[in-house]
Write a protein that binds this DNA or RNA. Sequence first.
DNA 1: GGAACGATCTGC
DNA 2: CAGATCGTTCCC
Length: 188
Amino acid sequence: MSNLATVLDDSPVRLAPRLLGSLLVRDTPHGQIVGRIVETEAYHQSGVASHSYRGQTPRNAVMFGPAGFAYVYFTYGMHYCCNIVTGTKGEGSAVLIRALEPLEGMEQMAKNRGRDDELTNGPAKLCQALNIDKSLNGHDLSMPPLTLVLKDPPKESEVVQSTRIGISHEQHQPWRFYLKDCEFISKK
DNA sequence: GGAACGATCTGC
DNA sequence: CAGATCGTTCCC
């Protein structure tokens, strides 16, 4: 098991805050795009809001695989969202990446987004900016062209724990996390 | 076979 | 606040 998979073999609620500050690196033919994870949301199998709640299907199969892979899904007929699979094989849990702070490749991101503001402050926006689509579903995040670079966990005082956003179930559950005073988090 | 809906975003 | 837009799931 890679170092990445070892760290991610844990509960999504513990990992969601721990992953804040880590980097998402996207390699493209035109150069590298880098973003810092600033907002996450935990999804575990026993939560009714999770895609894995009703068991394994072709769509959510990656969630039930080993940790350290990307679960990318298509929604609303036009958007992609990217998760980091967590936990052990057979478990069905993941951490949704909800927002990034753009660090490198902003020109690329703006081109992919078709605008030069609000590049990565939302789960579907960041996928568009990093050109993440279903072809990366099941991709091993320890290697290009999409890499998760773990950083040290943020201090507890830097993390805000909050309730869910944009979901019809479990709106009260405090499983959303973001970096305090960060201007790049998603909007309500 | 068909209907309902969604871990969203945008522009009015 | 409604529309876009289609894959997935669930029910008949």
